[in-house]
Write a protein that binds this DNA or RNA. Structure first.
Length: 752
DNA sequence: GCGATCAGGT
DNA sequence: CACACCTGATCGC
């Protein structure tokens, strides 16, 4: 698999070389234009960066040229799962390779130096003070937070409750239930969410308030009074406005219970608290849904990916992790709060949502900015282009990571940010695939598979003119179709909206293969939902005179065991391709970070308040493994202290810095040390492709520089440098490297 | 008519 | 499964 980048794939035309002539004849016959697929043969672009995700990545590769890097080759071909995480350490060194010299370690640097100190503090404009309403309809009372109590105007929009999934009405029920809820697994969650007693007390107070005023909230879920979880916002809490937002969900199964019955509200009796509940009267405004607690970062007034909840009480700054509908939903051009996101996402937001520029703040990957006295750092999320995770370091020193949607990869374990902030107090985690059954291959492998399947299809249908159609979202899945385009020299067409979105990505490789004329492209990228037989039949009807067959490709994490469907004209194949972490990747990532608490940000069912349960065993260690004297991962310490490292020959270039390898995973910690001996270093530049799309390593650094962002605000930006070397040495300092604690590493891969 | 939300479907 | 949309219906302005 790793040979992905080495395999020389035949281009579309080559595969059908023999058919070409006849093809042309046919074409002439049918259509004069005959652009049938013989796309720019000249464009045999080397499918170099198949794995490249963004321009950033490609840059990195260039930068690495000629540099000695430590790389690892994950053997995944033979085995079903790649275990990309195995590349971890090597990836780190690779990224730091620019200045890294194995033989001459530099003196350790003081930890103080490394972290990018807050540089400039930036107070946000509209910030704290005037909280504006998310929706201008300020006129209408409902939205305003203050309306909690007075909010009587029921909802105007009395949509006939369609077979209410029970959600709406039930929600309130939940509220009540919550109170009475007995403890179960959920309790744990609750505890987690309510760490300090102080906070708890506040919550109570708040909840009380709510309950009283809650009555106003009618049938809508918003009405549900859940205890508030806005922690750390003391002052705000007291304000009357508080009501709306963060309600603490008590996920309780009750919710579930209630929901399941889909029955109408009749059962609402549970909802005691709500006093006078104005049924659906003529409320003018729709109330936004209640904001689940995990949308607001504890200890801050920041809301992440929460735009559909109106003006969340106490929230002063909003963050958008990436441009996918389920995350920006609710964000409209009327939005009027400071909004932070990556440059790519910002471009998309400007283009499609048209949020007022004055509210848009960009945080580039690996850039740190001060927001309301909190250090905020954006980290590449390895999800879709522009997707980032946000790392918050509060003035109190508390560290909180919000992953947004992400696909954990080994490179993330190399981020100096994590090495320098070993104590993650809270982790908001994307648990989309938090199920042992979800275990998919590395993206690069998926790409290989796609190339193989498509190549085989083309070869098996020699004299056919084939239109390839790949499913995609507005953003995401680019790696698949880009690889196909480059490998088979195809021109790509997609709808104007997606084309516009692509132009926001700053990904030149994509731009190169795109064309505006669908008749001149034999690879079309269309909405994922249209990659179904009936839809494709219809789609193909417009191109039947130009093509003989259509091959639909559906890249998704759900296509793991899907079987291809080959028809006379329409064929479809599913490609297992995920932009979310697999179960194992999640586990490894959590074990790596070892946060004190973990809160899932992915609802399990329809109820936004009920999210997944992250196994505590992943981050709460009790066993002997956590008591190792070294205080840090043996593998890396061993590596760093090894005076002489040998560079194995190519065949043995496999890198196993992680103490565990597949063969060892079943054994226990005892074997870990043995595995460490497998560590090897290899000078390589091209293996980056294995990483799929994780540009992270490019920015490994510990130093920082200051500059100004597009807003003229001074920011902190770390740059790679010799600091990277220092980092290596500093690894000897438990205080700094503790991140990779042995306990975690030892059984990192020993899933079962 | 456009914007926005929501339910339902894929 | 439930990703990340789509589509259609319903309202509001």
């Amino acid at each position: 698999m790793s040979n992905v980048g080495k395999i020389r794939l035949k281009t579309f035309s080559e595969l059908q070389a023999t058919a070409e002539i006849s093809l042309r004849i046919e074409t002439d016959k049918t259509k004069p234009t005959e652009d049938n697929g013989h796309r720019t043969p000249e464009k045999k672009s080397p499918r170099k960066s198949r794995a490249a995700t963004t321009a950033r990545k490609s840059k990195k590769q260039e930068g690495n040229l000629g540099v000695v890097t430590v790389t690892s080759t994950v053997k995944r071909s033979s085995k079903k799962t790649p275990l990309p995480g195995q590349m971890r350490i090597d990836a780190f060194f690779k990224s730091a390779s620019k200045n890294y010299k194995v033989e001459t370690p530099l003196p350790p640097i003081s930890s103080s130096k490394k972290i990018s100190p807050p540089v400039v503090k930036r107070k946000e404009p509209a910030g704290a003070k005037g909280r504006k309403r998310l929706f201008d309809d300020s006129t209408t009372t409902s939205s305003t937070t203050s309306t909690w109590s007075d909010h009587k105007p029921p909802q105007k929009r009395v949509q006939p409750l369609r077979s209410a999934k029970g959600k709406e009405n039930l929600s309130e029920l939940d509220v009540i239930d919550l109170c009475s809820e007995d403890d179960d697994e959920r309790t744990i969650k609750e505890e987690e969410r309510t760490p300090s007693p102080v906070k708890a007390s506040k919550q109570v107070a708040i909840s009380d308030q709510k309950t009283n005023s809650a009555s106003s909230k009618p049938t809508s879920p918003e009405g549900s009074n859940r205890s508030m979880s806005l922690l750390g916002m003391g002052s705000n809490v007291s304000s009357p406005d508080i009501g709306q937002g963060l309600l603490r969900s008590t996920p309780s199964r009750k919710t579930k219970e209630i929901k399941k019955p889909k029955t109408p509200p009749s059962t609402n009796s549970k909802r005691i608290k709500k006093p006078t509940t104005p049924p659906a009267t003529n409320s003018k405004q729709r109330k936004p849904k209640p904001c689940p607690p995990y949308k607001v970062v504890e200890g801050t007034t920041f809301c992440v990916d929460g735009f559909q909840f109106g003006d969340v009480a106490g929230v002063t700054h909003y963050f958008l992790t990436h441009y996918h509908a389920d995350h920006y939903i609710g964000l409209t051009k009327k939005f009027s709060h400071p909004l932070y996101m990556s440059p790519i996402t910002a471009r998309l937001v400007r283009l499609f949502i048209k949020v007022d520029e004055k509210y848009i703040h960009e945080i580039d990957v690996d850039e740190t900015v001060m927001v309301d006295n909190v250090e905020v750092t954006a980290i590449e999320a390895n999800h879709c282009p522009g997707a980032v995770m946000f790392f918050f370091k509060l003035s109190s020193g508390e560290c909180i990571l919000h992953t947004g949607d992400f696909r954990a990869c080994s490179e993330m374990e190399s981020l100096p940010l994590f090495w320098n902030n070993t104590n993650i107090d809270l982790l908001y985690l994307d648990t989309t695939y938090l199920n042992k059954n979800y275990n998919f291959c590395h993206q690069s492998e998926s790409v290989d598979r796609a190339l193989h399947l498509v190549g085989a299809f083309i070869e098996k249908n020699p004299f056919k003119r084939i239109l390839i159609v790949c499913g995609s979202y507005v953003i995401g899945k680019e790696k698949i179709w880009l690889a196909l385009a480059e490998a088979f020299s195809l021109k790509v067409w997609t709808e104007s909206s997606r084309s516009d979105a692509i132009s926001c990505l700053g990904w030149d490789d994509l731009q190169v293969v795109l064309t505006d004329d669908p008749t001149k492209a034999n690879l079309h990228v269309i909405p994922m939902g249209k990659i179904s037989y009936p839809s494709l039949v219809e789609y193909f009807s417009q191109f039947e005179d130009q093509y003989d067959m259509l091959l639909g490709i559906r890249p998704s994490g759900w296509e793991k065991n899907s079987k291809p469907s080959f028809g006379k004209k329409i064929s479809t194949i599913g490609i297992e391709y995920s932009e979310h972490s697999s179960y194992k990747e999640l586990e490894r990532f959590v074990r790596f970070l070892k946060p004190k608490r973990v809160i899932s940000t992915v609802p399990v069912g329809r109820d936004l308040f009920v999210t997944g349960d992250v196994p505590k065993i992943w981050y709460q260690y009790q066993g002997p493994a956590s008591m190792l004297s070294t205080g840090f991962q043996r593998s890396i310490s061993t590596f760093l202290t090894t005076p002489k490292r040998t560079v194995p020959n190519a065949s043995a270039s496999e890198m196993m810095l992680s103490p565990l390898k597949e063969s060892c995973s079943d054994h226990g910690e005892e074997d870990s040390m043995e595995c460490v001996s497998i560590v090897s270093i290899k000078s390589s530049v091209s293996e980056n492709t294995n990483i799929g799309a994780c540009p992270i390593p490019e920015k490994v650094h510990l130093s920082e520089t200051r500059g100004t962002n597009n807003k003229g605000v001074i920011t902190t930006r770390t740059e790679d440098s010799k600091e990277a070397i220092k980092m290596k040495d500093s690894a000897k300092e438990p205080a700094i490297v503790r991140r990779l604690t042995s306990d975690a590493s030892d059984d990192w891969l020993s899933y079962s």
